Simulated scan of single mutants.
Amino acid sequence: MSNASTPLKDRLRTDLTAAIRGRDKVRSGTIRMVLSAISAAEVAGTEAVSLSEPQVLDVVIREAKKRREAEEAFLAAGRSELADKERAEAAVLADYLPQALSAAEVTAIVQAAIEQTGAAALGLKAMGTVMGVVTPQTKGKADGGSVAAEVRRQLAG
């Protein structure tokens, strides 16, 4: 694995070369897919741009989420061999994502955001305000659905 301070896109390219040399089909295929998604995002607008580091991370997060959703869908359909493939790809992508937050850390971040915004008195009406503060802190580090559920739980309580 490359140094974490290296730009993510360069790290992906270096790791792709290593995976190809090591004949790691799952890793090389997954990294190729992510690099392809990054390239597609770079040329998606009216003119080609080079993605910033946070934008590249957003693409990796989006691809990891697709893998998780596909794995769940395949498991629900009884296609365990396809679910295993998606799980293996998600594991490769996990190497490029920030360290995940624990449930206790998410709870603490939500609590601090509620105190900071004074949303406790407003209840669930203030959910958007609290999510606006919490999302930048948890992006890529915690599932958005579970973060929203925690905000809902604390605002309702």
Results as ranks from 00 to 15, higher is better:
A119C: 03
G123E: 03
T117Q: 05
V106C: 02
V106N: 02
S102D: 01
G128N: 14
A121G: 12
L101P: 12
A104D: 14
L124P: 12
L101V: 12
A103Y: 05
M127G: 15
G118W: 10
E105V: 05
A112V: 03
K125C: 04
T129E: 09
E105W: 04
L124G: 09
M127K: 12
V106H: 00
V106R: 00
T107L: 15
E115L: 15
S102H: 01
L124R: 09
A112F: 01
A121N: 13
K125L: 10
A126K: 03
L124T: 10
A126T: 05
Q116P: 07
I109Y: 00
Q116D: 15
A104T: 13
T129L: 15
A120S: 03
A113S: 13
A100T: 08
A100Y: 03
A120T: 02
T117W: 02
L124K: 06
G128H: 06
I114W: 01
M127D: 08
A119G: 12
E105L: 06
L122M: 15
E105N: 09
S102T: 09
S102M: 06
K125H: 02
A121D: 14
Q116F: 07
I109K: 02
E105G: 13
M131D: 05
V130A: 12
A103H: 01
A126E: 07
Q111W: 13
A120Q: 09
A103I: 11
I109E: 01
L124M: 12
A104I: 14
V106K: 00
T107E: 13
V106W: 00
E115Q: 12
A100R: 08
M131Y: 05
A108D: 06
A119I: 06
A108K: 02
A120K: 04
V110G: 03
M131C: 05
E105H: 06
A108E: 07
M131G: 06
V110W: 04
A104L: 14
T107R: 13
Q111K: 13
T107I: 08
A119D: 00
Q111G: 15
V110K: 03
A108M: 01
M127V: 10
A103R: 08
A126N: 08
M127H: 10
E105C: 04
M127Y: 05
V110H: 02
A119E: 06
Q111P: 12
T129D: 08
V106Y: 00
G118Y: 00
L122H: 10
A108L: 04
Q111N: 14
A126H: 07
T107H: 15
K125E: 03
A119N: 04
A104S: 15
L122G: 14
A112D: 09
A104P: 15
M131N: 06
K125S: 08
A112R: 09
G118H: 08
E115A: 15
T129K: 10
G128E: 09
A108H: 00
I109N: 01
A113K: 07
A100N: 05
I109M: 02
A119L: 05
V110F: 02
Q111L: 15
T129S: 10
S102V: 04
T117A: 11
S102W: 00
M127A: 14
T107Q: 12
L101I: 07
I114T: 09
